[in-house]
Amino acid sequence: ESGGGLLINQAIHTIDYLQDIGGEIKSISGGISKLKNVDLDIEDTAAIKLEFNNGIEAFFSGTLCNFSNTSISLKVYCQGGNYTIRDGQLFLNRNGEEKILEKDEKGEIKDYYGASHEIEIKSFYDSLGNNEKLYLSLSESLKSLKIITDIYERGDLK
């Protein structure tokens, strides 16, 4: 009825971010579950740890059980501070001071979609019959899909 669960419908974009930052996956642990929609065959909650070949570790958690839409928050910890993507903005926090580095100029689309949906859809239609290169290649798209498929194949849905 829903077309897919949390990972494939909502979280794939966050997993795109993590894969872009971390690179090739070394291992995946954690699990997916049905906390609210127990009668459906899909997950509504996930807690996943990704370890990358370069030593970077990432932790992802997400749920469809919120009472209202909330934007994603992605935080990257670095030696001299941390970067956060939240509410369509990129922040740098150094020594307790936060400053905005970049804003996502979304236009007239839903806030949680971000600007890339509009760019990708336009790129797809422009490429039909014009031999133009897609905004995001198929090989890049398949990387995040493989991560999600690997999580599903673990069989940890409870």
Results as ranks from 00 to 15, higher is better:
Glu1Lys: 08
Ser2Glu: 08
Leu7Trp: 00
Ile8Lys: 02
Asn9Gly: 01
Gln10Lys: 08
Gln10Ser: 12
Gln10Leu: 02
Ala11Thr: 02
Ile12Tyr: 01
Ile12Gly: 00
His13Lys: 04
His13Gly: 09
Ile15Tyr: 00
Asp16Lys: 07
Tyr17Glu: 05
Tyr17Arg: 04
Leu18Asp: 03
Leu18Gly: 04
Gln19Thr: 15
Gln19Phe: 09
Ile21Met: 10
Glu24Trp: 01
Ile25Met: 07
Ser27Lys: 09
Ile28Phe: 09
Ile28Pro: 02
Ser29Lys: 15
Gly30Arg: 08
Gly30Asp: 10
Gly31Met: 01
Ser33Phe: 00
Leu35Ile: 05
Lys36Ile: 04
Lys36Glu: 07
Leu40Phe: 06
Leu40His: 05
Asp41Trp: 03
Asp41Ala: 15
Glu43Gln: 10
Asp44Phe: 03
Ala47Cys: 11
Phe52Cys: 02
Asn54Leu: 11
Gly55Asp: 10
Glu57Met: 09
Phe59Asp: 05
Gly62Leu: 08
Asn66Trp: 09
Asn69Gln: 08
Thr70Leu: 08
Ile72Asp: 03
Ser73Met: 13
Leu74Ala: 13
Lys75Gln: 13
Gln79Ala: 14
Gln79Leu: 10
Gln79Met: 04
Gln79Asp: 15
Asn82Asp: 12
Asn82Phe: 15
Asn82Leu: 12
Arg86Pro: 00
Gly88Leu: 12
Gln89Trp: 01
Leu90Val: 10
Leu90Trp: 01
Phe91Ile: 12
Phe91Gly: 03
Arg94Val: 15
Arg94Leu: 11
Asn95Glu: 15
Asn95Arg: 12
Glu97Met: 10
Glu98Trp: 03
Lys99Pro: 00
Lys99Glu: 13
Leu101Met: 09
Asp104His: 01
Glu105Asp: 06
Glu105Leu: 07
Lys106Ile: 09
Tyr112Leu: 06
Tyr112His: 08
Gly114Gln: 02
Gly114Glu: 02
His117Pro: 00
Glu118Val: 02
Ile119Lys: 14
Glu120Cys: 07
Ile121Glu: 06
Lys122Phe: 03
Ser123Gly: 04
Phe124Tyr: 14
Asp126Thr: 07
Leu128His: 02
Asn130His: 11
Asn131Gln: 14
Asn131Arg: 12
Leu134Met: 10
Leu136Met: 13
Leu136Pro: 00
Leu136Ile: 15
Ser137Pro: 03
Ser139Lys: 14
Ser141Thr: 15
Lys143Pro: 00
Leu145Cys: 02
Lys146Cys: 02
Ile147Asp: 00
Ile148His: 04
Ile148Cys: 11
Ile148Leu: 11
Thr149Pro: 00
Asp150Arg: 07
Asp150Cys: 13
Arg154Ala: 11
Gly155Thr: 14
Asp156Pro: 01
Leu157Gly: 12
